[in-house]
Design a protein around this nucleic acid. Structure first.
Length: 832
RNA sequence: GCUGGUGUGGUGGAAUGGUAGACACGAAGGACUCAAAAUCCUUUGGAGGUAACUCCGUAACGGUUCAAGUCCGUUCACCAGCACCA
């Protein structure tokens, strides 16, 4: 009898004792495979059946590739910084570090019973100072390169929770947790200039094999658009307004300009008469959140009293301000073409502005002076040329992508390796630390005093999080770290960049007063480069050895969810490109292939959630049915990349299948089965199975692997087939049900691990059949099957087909008009 | 609104343009059992026929083809992402 508990415990132990060895050879040639699954956030809720689906799927690949003789890197680690742990820690009055350690232990305990072949010797943890030393190191390189800077952005502030919240944490102006009201406040934040890489992030998508949906989503997010930036002179003034347009062909249809309410020129050009209403409108929009602005049904705006001069016609056109124009895209001003732009039309109709049609239905220009009767494409070219010649405009590429807001006013994140010093002291900097200064100094004002950001010495890394009394945020702009006065107030060395607490006496006059940065990094930081650390997880000298990076990069297969396709995937590609630029990594792209896994939903097709009480505990499933059954079921339930509802009944079915496999091997051993019915068919079937499983694993079609294994068992479970065939079968089963396959392998007398045996190869000659079944389609309908020997000529096949009684009956002594013999598809078509 | 994607039995789903519904779940009947569980066997898209078998059937309508779940067009429904991006 198949007892999953005994078998699985036995092999977990034997494997742990070294019965299998997945360690990697030092020699790595072309046949390496780096398989990466998104490392989990170790939440208090524990492992989810959804985690398991992707880990098992990639485990199956890892196991097959190893059996095929490849070097496989299949690592795991913890993405452990972040708000949920911090909140959990606050609620339970423990430190986030302890909460994290507990949660990781729990996750590890759960993962240990699933038969996953992770390389635990490479385990990493983003909250480990040995790890975040390098997160801080990379960030310092970006600081040095001028990619890190500070800017004031609008952030969500929740007075009740005394904290800044991320956009995702605010729903309809209320906090996701507790539903407290939130407001938008301006706050100075660290930013990373990802937009400088927008072009490469877009273009280099051509060089990688991501699923096309993933590429599309990345492209949409980056939002590249080509157009023209051009200048409109303000009437009776020397000022110009710049606008960006992708439709320069509609230039003659411009009947007004619109500036965003925050546009810096607005006050300067507004005439005295209109000052008050423009001001009032600006105040109005300020009080509205982005959300309100978006949700507004009708467009609003006011006239400025000013006019611009059309660059080609010289006509005067009114200038308006309206909040449907966004300050943070393009130039914050648009040339309105109401005839050919929906938003402009709506606005023009509301305020009775002129509408001039300049494009016909056939996409030909009209009302456009000398450009009339040109196609839009041709007009774009010519107009761009003309404006460039007149020095009024030039081609321009715009991106929707915004720079990355890179600070959080929270505790549980990487501290910035930054100290703020006075202007006077900044000018005193000399020696090695000056090499790490950004091209443009970064400053802030505190109580009207200017402070300069200076980098910490590399030798001071990691800059560890201090222990603090309370993790509760203290007030706007001050993260919990601000409480740690001993930590924040430092002596900073103006030559070396080292910092020590001001609790110590000032060593000498090369040490100046400084304040550490009290913001922390967002949890996207640690996950932006973790795949590099797996390659060389214990290196203290560099983030990873160059030769090892050369050998293992890029990641061959990166598996993850669609929810990370825009943010995480884009951020890590950005960091990787930066590291490439400074010579740290040898490739331009981190991931060669990116695939997605589908979500597992609760029974009934809704999302699993604790609050709904519809979650499935994977460990309970392991206890009841075994890890092998759980693995097989999660692969069998449906196409791997699609969302699918959990069904414990289906798991029971898979458990039944494994029981039957066990029974089959027992029966073979005790010799109480029927003899083989058809050796040729068996040869064909086993070879076909090998071929199919090998291909299907490669193509992520795990569900059909399982059904093929079931089919083979259904056909042969009563026949006394040769032990060799059983062994082949077990090898094919091994990646899916590693414990059971190992047990049965041992039962058949093997003394070494099945997981280190060689993956079966199919024999092509066995897949060629001596007799072929031809399906006979008559007028498109399948009418008969005629078995013909494989070496028959086309003529012979035709004769045999026409001889079939069934065919004769249907033909009813008519002569067929046409006979097609399709060798590859084994189809004969007769038209009567 | 835009961009992708998906529509197949009671359910999850299979099907390089070539036997639609593999495999599994569920259900019904049967065997074993004092009984139950487990296991095993049979049936299981719809309609008609004693039967061999016939006809219909892959969201809807049209098209291409000897042949369409699959390719093309239109429509509808659902899912995901983006959303005043000039």
């Amino acid at each position: 009898m198949y007892n999953h508990r005994i078998i699985e415990q036995k092999w977990i132990q034997k494997w742990a004792e070294g019965f299998v060895d997945y360690s990697l050879d030092k020699q790595i040639s072309d046949d390496k495979k780096y398989i990466l699954v998104e490392f989990p956030f170790p939440s208090g809720a524990g492992l989810h059946v959804g985690h398991i689906r992707s880990y098992v799927a990639q485990d199956i690949k890892a196991r097959m590739y190893r059996m095929q003789g490849q070097q496989v890197l299949y690592p795991i680690g913890w993405d452990a910084f972040g708000l949920p742990t911090e909140n959990y820690a606050i609620q339970n009055n423990i430190s986030p570090a302890i909460a994290t350690a507990d949660n990781i232990n729990n996750f590890k305990k759960q993962l240990a019973v699933l038969g996953l072949s992770f390389d635990w010797s490479r385990e990493i943890n983003t909250t480990d100072p040995k790890y975040y030393k390098w997160t801080q190191w990379i960030w310092l390189q970006m600081f040095k390169a001028g990619l890190a800077y500070q800017d004031t952005t609008q952030v969500w502030w929740c007075e009740e929770l005394k904290t800044v919240l991320a956009n995702e944490e605010v729903i309809d102006g209320k906090s996701e947790r507790g539903g407290h009201p939130c407001t938008r406040v301006p706050l100075r934040q660290w930013m990373l200039a990802i937009t400088k890489y927008a072009d490469r992030l877009d273009k280099d998508l051509e060089t990688v094999d991501y699923l096309s949906v993933i590429k599309t989503q990345q492209r949409n997010w980056i939002g590249r658009s080509e157009g023209v930036q051009l200048k409109f002179q303000i009437a009776n003034s020397t000022q110009f307004v710049e606008v960006f347009t992708t439709r320069i062909d509609t230039l003659f249809g411009v009947t007004f300009l619109v500036l965003a309410p925050e546009h810096p020129l607005l006050n300067k050009i507004t005439t005295a008469e209109y000052q008050s209403q423009v001001q009032q409108y600006h105040e109005q929009t300020k009080s509205k959140s982005d959300l309100d602005r978006q949700q507004e049904k009708y467009k609003t705006g006011v006239f400025t009293g000013a006019y611009a001069i059309h660059p080609l016609t010289g006509k005067q056109i009114p200038i308006w301000t309206a909040d449907y124009v966004l300050m943070n895209y393009g130039t914050g001003a648009v040339m309105a073409v109401p005839a050919h732009d929906e938003r402009d039309r709506e606005f023009a109709e509301k305020y009775n502005l002129e509408i001039i049609n300049v494009i016909t239905e056939q996409n030909i220009l009209e009302n456009s002076e000398s450009y009339n009767s040109l196609s839009t494409t041709e007009a774009k070219l010519q107009l761009t040329q003309e404006l460039t010649n007149q020095n009024l405009g030039q081609q321009k590429i715009q991106y929707k992508l915004r720079d990355w807001v890179f600070s959080r006013q929270r505790y549980w994140g990487e501290p910035f390796p930054i100290v703020w010093i006075s202007e006077h002291d900044y000018k005193m900097l000399s020696g090695e630390i000056t090499e790490f200064l950004p091209p443009k100094a970064i400053t802030r004002e505190v109580d009207d005093i200017l402070q300069y950001a200076v980098p910490l010495a590399i030798s001071d890394l990691p800059l560890e999080l201090p222990e603090i009394e309370s993790y509760i945020p203290q007030g706007l702009g001050d993260g919990p770290l601000a409480q740690a006065k001993d930590w924040v107030e430092v002596w900073y060395n103006i030559i070396t960049g080292q910092a020590i607490s001001r609790q110590n006496p000032r060593p000498d006059n090369t040490w100046v007063e400084g304040m550490r940065e009290t913001d922390t990094m967002p949890n996207w930081a640690g996950s932006s480069w973790y795949y590099l650390r797996y390659i060389d997880p214990n290196n203290d000298e560099v983030l990873a050895d160059k030769n090892l990076l050369q050998e293992w990069l890029p990641v061959d297969l990166y598996n993850g969810g669609m929810e990370h396709v825009t943010v995480h995937l884009l951020y890590s590609r950005f960091w990787h490109k930066f590291l490439y630029d400074i010579g740290v990594v040898p490739t331009q792209e981190p991931y060669q292939t990116r695939i997605k896994h589908g979500m597992i939903l609760a029974e009934g097709g809704v999302k699993m959630s604790k609050s709904k009480g519809n979650t499935v505990d994977p460990i309970e499933m392991v206890e009841s049915f075994g890890a092998d059954s759980l693995r097989v079921y999660e692969m069998f339930m449906g196409p791997y990349d699609e969302a699918i509802a959990w069904d414990t009944k289906g798991l029971i079915g898979c458990s039944r299948f494994l029981k039957r496999v066990y029974q089959w091997v027992e029966d073979i051993k005790s010799d109480n089965l029927e003899p083989i019915q058809d050796q040729n068919k068996l040869d064909y079937d086993i070879n076909y199975l090998i071929q199919k499983i090998t291909q299907d694993i490669d193509n992520q079609k795990y569900n059909t692997c399982i059904s093929s294994l079931m089919e083979f068992l259904n056909s042969y479970q009563k026949q006394n087939i040769q032990i060799d065939y059983i062994k082949q079968y077990l090898k094919l089963l091994a990646p899916f049900a590693p414990h059971l396959a190992e047990e049965l392998w041992e039962m058949l007398g093997e003394t070494t691990s099945i997981h280190q045996s060689q993956w079966p190869q199919y024999d092509e000659t066995k897949l060629v059949q001596s007799k072929i079944d031809y399906q006979i389609h008559i007028n498109g309908k399948m009418r008969d099957i005629v078995t013909v020997s494989a070496d028959a000529t086309e003529h012979g096949i035709q004769a045999q087909v026409l001889n079939s009684p069934k065919v004769q009956q249907i033909l009813n002594s008519n002569t067929p008009k046409k006979i097609i013999v399709n060798q590859a598809k084994k189809i004969v078509i007769i038209i009567s």
